[in-house]
Design a protein around this nucleic acid. Sequence first.
DNA 1: GTCTATAACACGATAGAC
DNA 2: GTCTATCGTGTTATAGAC
Lengths: 233, 233
Amino acid sequence: MSEPDPDEPATRGGQTRAVILDTALRLFEEQGYERTTMRAIAAEAGVSVGNAYYYFDSKEQLIQAFYDLNGERQVVASGPAMEGSRDLAVRLRSVLRTWVEINAGNHEFAGSFFKHAADPRSPLSPFSRESVPAREAVTEIFRSVVAGSDVKVPPVLRAELPNLLWLYQMGIVLFWVHDRSPGTAKTYELIDRTVPLVVRAIGLARFRVMRGLLDDTLELIASLSGNSLTGRA
Amino acid sequence: MSEPDPDEPATRGGQTRAVILDTALRLFEEQGYERTTMRAIAAEAGVSVGNAYYYFDSKEQLIQAFYDLNGERQVVASGPAMEGSRDLAVRLRSVLRTWVEINAGNHEFAGSFFKHAADPRSPLSPFSRESVPAREAVTEIFRSVVAGSDVKVPPVLRAELPNLLWLYQMGIVLFWVHDRSPGTAKTYELIDRTVPLVVRAIGLARFRVMRGLLDDTLELIASLSGNSLTGRA
DNA sequence: GTCTATAACACGATAGAC
DNA sequence: GTCTATCGTGTTATAGAC
């Protein structure tokens, strides 16, 4: 609350905040998260250790700032990425590949801090309260992916589909973090090959044999969303 | 490799190892992982810190030992849990609930070290090389769940199904770690309500509309399993 | 409010003596 | 195999300067 708007660092001394963050992210990418010390960040940013802790409560909080930055980047880049096609598969594939491209330089870095994001207690968890705004912004992308396409989504599925696609992206990210193929080629392959499956699965929702299963699944999701897993009310 | 067999600690000085491990797991359960220091473990076990590190390369490795212990417990308990029914849903539900019951006392503990297991670089990752034996032992349980049931699994699905059920259990575990409902009641509910869905989904594999999707999915799994994600050859 | 400098603390981990 | 001493790290504390 007391921290200045990260988008407007020009005015305040909160410009310092931006310098510290930029330096930290650069060092994280160069050396990995664990091997980058707070002392090194402060020294490289030209500030004291105490000052770094004045703007960031902990080292982990630097990752939180990275998250927010990254979410914004995906939102910004996804608009153009979706343009030019109303085909759901094309749009979905494009948005997912964009995410991977944006994060190409962060693969090492991501691997080294992923553990913190997986901690259910950590604010870094994608399911945490702190991550709600970022998650909803990204979910909004997927709502737009569907809304701008020419597929008719069965009404029962309409409300929940963006959330499910967000979860689908989480799965892609999980794979990507573990992916050691050159240029994370396997992740691109995973996207290219699962997107048609997902689209086809959505189409199957119309069939009678599927409907019972689908209805029960959606009801289950609704029933359990009070859980802290989703962070939803 | 140089460490003594943990099942036969009587003979060697490696009995020390057992004392250290027992003490560590007790303290972990009492105080959580992070708040239990190596100094405390060593002191409580009546050895020096250096000696603790002689038997365990790191604090994390104490968790690895816990994993192995836990896997064994599930294997032992699952046999009786499955007895008495050839209904796949009953058997599956029973095995999954057994896992939750076994780990009821470790819920806090599990939450506190889950982050380490999620680190793709960590040997604690369920996808790591080090976890292959434990994972295969548990997968074997699910093979037995299916084999002892009266359902006819479509041939295409037969080979991969145990692996998919293991992945399903990982999903349950992920939910459980985040579950803060009293007695992890929500997790039990999740099991009770997803098991029928899973069983029904397996049944759907016979329908024509599903087959294309299923075949492509299985082919994809086969194609990507060279990835480090699964650790399979 | 923003920032520095320095010291100190607790912890995981290591080195090297015995 | 076991110990004591020590290091490097995240983090906090202090005491102040602009």
